[in-house]
Every structure is written in C-alpha cells, then in structure tokens.
Lab assay of single mutants.
Amino acid sequence: HNLTITQGKLFFHYNPKLCLSEIHKMEEVSGTKGRQERNDIALKTNGDQASCENELLKFSYIRTSFDKILLRWEPYWPPDFRDLLGFMLFYKEAPYQNVTEFDGQDACGSNSWTVVDIDPPLRSNDPKSQNHPGWLMRGLKPWTQYAIFVKTLVTFSDERRTYGAKSDIIYVQTDATNPSVPLDPISVSNSSSQIILKWKPPSDPNGNITHYLVFWERQAEDSELFELDYCLKGLKLPSRTWSPPFESEDSQKHNQSEYEDSAGECCSCPKTDSQILKELEESSFRKTFEDYLHNVVFVPRKTSSGTGAEDPRPSRKRRSLGDVGNVTVAVPTVAAFPNTSSTSVPTSPEEHRPFEKVVNKESLVISGLRHFTGYRIELQACNQDTPEERCSVAAYVSARTMPEAKADDIVGPVTHEIFENNVVHLMWQEPKEPNGLIVLYEVSYRRYGDEELHLCVSRKHFALERGCRLRGLSPGNYSVRIRATSLAGNGSWTEPTYFYVTDYLDVPSNIA
C-alpha cells in the first residue's frame, strides 16, 4: 500500500525493539523526510534493546553428524571492536523451508527459537588472519532439518551509529543413524509349514526405512522333555500350542467401542483428552525405555581390526524358502538304536541362519518350516543398504507352526516275539517326523474274553527296548493296539495285532 503524509511529521519514542533503520525507511515511504526535528525521533529510546544489523554474515563451514552440527561463519568486528559482546545463534526444527525470524513471537518477546549466546573469538592483530567464530550444536535429532541463523550482539553506541551483522536463515539436516526397533511384532501360524509375521514401523526411523531383515531359527525343545518319565503317576503330560491366527481386521481397528449394538453396526467412541494424553505418555515412556535398553543392555560386537582377528559373527547367506525346513542338525536320541526319531534339535552355532529381506511392506510369510516346531524370529529395521547396512537392534518374537495331521501315527506293522515265561516283546517304529517329539506310547492289549488293559511306555523305555515287553501273560489269544502321544496330543491307534500265548508248562520236552 502507498502511504503519503502531505502535512505533519513523524514522532517515535520509547520503541526499544524498533531499529532506527526501520524508522528511516518509514520517513522515505511516507514522504516526511526532512520535516522531523532532532528530538522527534529519539536516538536513545528507539532500538536500544534490539540488534540492528546492516551487514550480512556468511557461514564459512558446515559439518553434520547424526546428532551434531558444527558451524563456522566469517569474522565480524565493528569499528570499535570492544562493542562486540558476542553472537546469538538461533535454531529450531523446520520440516519445511518457510521459516521466518519472527515465527511464534508474542507480545512478551518470546519466540519459538532456541538461542545460544556465543563469546567472540580472540581478536588477531592481523586483519587478514582473524579467527572464524563458530559453535557445535549438540543433542539434535537424527535425520531432522533445522533452520539456523546467527547475528551479532553489540553494545549501545553513544554516537548512535547503527552497526551489526546478521546471516540469512539456512537449512541444515542432520545425518541418518540406526533406527529404533520395529514396533509390535506379531507372529502367527496359518499352516503346519508357515508363519505369518506382521509389525509396525519404528517410532524413530532416523532416516528413510529402506528394508527390513527377518531372521528365523528353529528352537530346540526343553531338555526336561527328553529326561522326564511322563508315565509316572502324578506327572502331567506336557503340551505345546501353536500360535493362533490373526483376529479379523475389524476387531483390530483402534479407537473402536468394545460393545456392539445388537441391531447392527455401531460407531466408534472418540477417545477423551485424558485417554489420548495417557497414550502419549505411555508411548514416550516406551521410547525412553527402549533407548535405555539399547544403550545399557546391548553391547556392540567388536569388529575385526587390522591384526587379522576374525569377526566372530557368522556370515549372512541367503537361502531359498524351500530350504528352511531342514535348518537344524538332527541327532538321534540314543545312538545305539537307529530307529528312534531325530527330534532332539541342538543347533550348531556355526550354522548360517536363513533370512529374508523385506522391502516396502511390514509383513512376511515364512514358508518351508517344520510342522509343530518353535521358531525364534528376529526382526531388524534398516535405513541404508549400501555401502553397508545400517540397521536397528533386533526385536524378537516366537511362534510355533501348526501340527501336521497323521504325523504322530505309527507307520509300519507292530511285530512281536514270544519268549519263555510268557513274555512277549512288542516292537514298532517311532514316527519319523512327529509333531514336536514323542513323549510316550500307549499300549492297549486284551486277552479274548477279558477286559482291555493299558500300559504306558516312556520315551526312554522305548529307546532301550525298541518297544516294550509284556510279562506274566496268561495263555490265550491276544490283540494289541499302540498309539503315540506327542507334544500336540495323541496320534491314531494302530491296526490290531494278534498273537497267541501258550502255557509254557505244557511245552513238550526233548528229553527222552
């Protein structure tokens, strides 16, 4: 807008934040220059609390790290170098490059900038070799853009010569660093050979998330399962459950009422301010606690030095998902009996873990797994792929695949051998790939016309006998059925096997 004052003059007093240069501009645009008398524009009460600059400061050096910015700028000295009290560095987070010096300023003089007072450097006698002032900004957020400017702080001049310097606002972004852990990993099994893994992005990506790394490792069953005799009275049979499938998407929606109208769909109840505040506090606490764990609990591995020492970490090797089922080394339970199943799973520490690289999504279907087997899954978020990966501390989750139908069934015939004193040795093959492992066998036998009897055969007993022995049988026709019990439950009964026990007292003698 054009402003013209045809008559009258300007009068400025007691404006401590208004620089004289701005008042002189007002004289020019209003056409009143030359009308004012000496005392109409006070030299001592206008701009006496402001830094009124008329020179431009330029930054000469900028260096960044993930949490620091090192700045240096060209030296500046007023005509009387004693008038320079120091520099004021202003900075704040700036997602967009549209910041002005006066953003967030209120009537009390406060604003949204963080201000650092910096002492002037030592003055050199040689004007050509003056030290460049600077400042190291610490405690910054990774991968965050900051708006920065600097200006001088000078003393009051009796001659009211307006001098000083100020830089333009520059924008500097800190470097990326390792992201925080992925949030809320959930693993479920939808079949006997697959596990579905879902997660949420890290709360602090500290860069642009480029991919996720998912490692999985087959877990050995508890050692007590191999040692305890679950045929003993009072000892509860062990059981394991597989990871249940995901709930429906509708039930997972946030901010939804727990109660549904019987007449149909209901609208979600909005969260109160107290609920939102509580969630923010919980989120802040979780982030602080995660940072504490990362800094205190997890110790970084030592990389190899120039002395030739090897990095103890196993090298990563990509495998196809079809090879995942046989990740671990199978060892027989008892070496003397080769027909026992290889369900003991000690994992070799030198073995390469299978892994998958996930790009542009937060889910993965891990296939080719062994049925009813526990897996430990390790999830890392990465925001750099080359020249070397920059990934987060791992988040861990466990899951067990679903049982395989008929995996616990005894394959092959049940054979028998009759000894003296009416002892019958029953023999059968253990299931080759049971659900988890076989903890015991149930032997059901009966003599024709009598009630059915049951015998429990422990895992250890089966390994020693290759089956079991029935003792003290009365003469007669017998039928026997056997079924295995694994961590997933009972298998199917075998087809009945028949044998006849004679009275050993009636056996004919070869003595003449």
Rank of each mutant, 00 (worst) to 15 (best):
K317E: 15
H425W: 06
C269A: 02
D250E: 14
T386Y: 10
A488N: 02
E247T: 09
N208A: 06
S320P: 05
G467T: 08
S274M: 02
Q252S: 10
K357P: 08
S342H: 11
T288W: 05
Y498I: 14
P245Y: 13
H254V: 11
V345Q: 11
N339E: 11
I276D: 01
T272F: 06
E430F: 11
L453N: 14
T303W: 11
T288C: 15
L321Q: 14
I438L: 11
R446P: 00
R218I: 07
C391Q: 13
P332C: 10
R313V: 10
V297H: 03
L321S: 09
H461G: 08
S348N: 14
K317A: 12
Y498S: 07
A336T: 10
S304D: 11
V299L: 02
F226V: 13
A335L: 13
A395I: 11
V334H: 09
C456S: 02
P205V: 02
A484S: 06
P475G: 06
Y478T: 01
Y478N: 01
L453A: 09
G472M: 05
Q384K: 02
N477A: 11
Y498H: 06
V324W: 04
C468W: 08
C231M: 01
F289I: 02
E290R: 02
Y500D: 09
V424M: 13
S284G: 13
N326I: 08
N435C: 15
N208T: 01
Y478L: 01
P387Q: 10
G489L: 02
P245C: 09
P238H: 03
F337S: 12
D503R: 10
F355D: 03
G449F: 10
V507R: 15
F246Q: 14
E389F: 15
I418P: 12
C269S: 05
V296E: 09
E451M: 14
I482F: 09
T303M: 10
C231S: 01
P413G: 13
T288V: 14
G322W: 12
V443W: 01
S262T: 11
E224V: 07
S458I: 03
P346V: 14
R459Q: 13
E265H: 12
E378W: 04
Y448V: 10
P205T: 08
Q429M: 10
H461M: 11
N360E: 14
P413I: 15
E417R: 05
Q256N: 11
W216F: 10
P205R: 05
T494V: 14
N383K: 01
R466G: 02
S363R: 12
Y259V: 14
D506L: 05
Q380R: 03
R240I: 07
S367H: 04
